[in-house]
Amino acid sequence: MAGRFAPRPTRTTVRGGHVAVPGGAPGGVPGGVPRPAAAPGRVRTFVPEWPLDLGLVLGPLRRGPADPTFRAMPDGSVWRASLTPAGPGTLRVAARRDGEVRGEAWGPGAEWLLDRLPELLGAADDPSVFVPRHRLLAVTRHRRPGLRLTRTGLVLESLIPSILEQKVTTDEAYRAWRSLVRKFGEPAPGPAAGGRLWVMPAPRTWALIPSWEWHRAGVDNKRASTILRAVRVAARLEQAVGMSAAEAQARLEVVPGVGPWTSAEVVQRSHGAADAVTVGDLHLPGIVGWALAGDRDADDEAMLSLLEPYAGQRHRAARLILLSGRTPARRAPRMPRGDIGRL
């Protein structure tokens, strides 16, 4: 449930959150736009003390395969465009075979992004405290040693797409995010400018989007109104990154229309919250119930009971379950897609 609207989203939390990041020669630019030699970015390199899987760590940040703020390139790099407290920024991350990670950033937010690069890649996470109590989770953790929980340090960039994902199908939510960012955002700074990478709109821009544009993007009035209420207090919400995950969720849920489902989706990304299990999801309880107890009809209460041995690490446990691939067979038609933009 998200606030008073009691949405039943069809998107299962991160669904494992893995993005395929192929290997290749360095230098790829989103959209095939040539990298200008006269505009080098700021660079930071470091060697993580853990096995790094860029696709696993950064996968939850991608909102669909055509997310205009995220690109996984054939050269093995991941590009992100973010609206930081210092302004728009573009970040390219690539991991070398010798273990070194190279981050390159452009725009006013470049330094901010590079300062937080280790946390983005899981430096603030401690998976060693997780103790598997089911064979399935033990096996999955062994097979996915590169799983770390990202921490972006940004609230609004996760809150707005999470609100769009309330009460609709995944495809509808991704289409709305893609349409609104491309129409009202700005091209990402650096070599990706003019390509396929965009920075999401600033809070004031979200607040000025006309009602008919929300309609064209397929966003109903309830979700649009929730976003408008959130961007009016954007500064207060961004301050939540300095709080604990539980305190941040409480602050987010003060906004009408934002409930436990949405707030958990946010702090999983903004805080790297290992215990922020998503409740109110249409599929997740059944997946967890099936994986741990053979109960495909499990509800939120049953799911939380099954995850109780993982208190403090319930989100990590849920991600490992999703990554295991052990899900019940579908026995009902997919939720019908709607398109209010054509009404």
Results as ranks from 00 to 15, higher is better:
residue 228 L to T: 11
residue 225 S to P: 08
residue 271 H to F: 04
residue 276 A to P: 09
residue 237 L to G: 06
residue 266 V to K: 00
residue 251 R to C: 08
residue 254 V to T: 13
residue 292 L to Y: 07
residue 222 K to F: 10
residue 301 E to G: 13
residue 290 W to L: 09
residue 312 G to A: 03
residue 253 E to A: 01
residue 283 H to M: 09
residue 233 V to I: 13
residue 239 Q to C: 11
residue 232 R to S: 06
residue 281 D to N: 04
residue 258 V to Q: 03
residue 311 A to Y: 00
residue 297 D to V: 09
residue 238 E to R: 14
residue 263 S to Y: 14
residue 228 L to G: 06
residue 250 A to C: 09
residue 225 S to T: 11
residue 294 G to I: 08
residue 223 R to D: 05
residue 292 L to Q: 02
residue 218 G to Q: 00
residue 262 T to R: 03
residue 227 I to S: 03
residue 223 R to Y: 05
residue 253 E to F: 07
residue 283 H to C: 08
residue 317 A to M: 10
residue 313 Q to A: 12
residue 254 V to G: 05
residue 233 V to P: 09
residue 298 A to I: 14
residue 249 Q to A: 04
residue 309 P to D: 12
residue 257 G to C: 07
residue 307 L to V: 12
residue 234 A to M: 08
residue 220 D to C: 07
residue 312 G to K: 10
residue 230 A to I: 04
residue 313 Q to P: 13
residue 226 T to L: 05
residue 254 V to C: 02
residue 267 V to Q: 04
residue 315 H to A: 14
residue 221 N to S: 06
residue 238 E to Q: 10
residue 271 H to L: 08
residue 250 A to G: 10
residue 287 I to W: 07
residue 220 D to F: 02
residue 224 A to G: 09
residue 225 S to M: 03
residue 294 G to P: 15
residue 308 E to N: 11
residue 256 P to D: 00
residue 255 V to F: 06
residue 278 T to W: 00
residue 264 A to P: 12
residue 228 L to V: 14
residue 306 L to C: 07
residue 216 R to Y: 02
residue 268 Q to H: 09
residue 305 S to W: 12
residue 258 V to D: 01
residue 241 V to E: 08
residue 290 W to S: 12
residue 245 A to P: 02
residue 295 D to Q: 06
residue 274 A to N: 07
residue 312 G to R: 14
residue 261 W to D: 05
residue 313 Q to T: 15
residue 224 A to S: 15
residue 316 R to C: 08
residue 234 A to K: 03
residue 299 D to H: 10
residue 302 A to D: 09
residue 274 A to P: 14
residue 309 P to R: 07
residue 304 L to E: 10
residue 244 S to M: 11
residue 289 G to V: 01
residue 220 D to H: 04
residue 232 R to E: 12
residue 267 V to P: 11
residue 254 V to F: 05
residue 245 A to W: 02
residue 284 L to R: 08
residue 265 E to K: 06
residue 238 E to H: 11
residue 305 S to V: 10
residue 316 R to H: 13
residue 303 M to D: 00
residue 252 L to I: 11
residue 258 V to K: 08
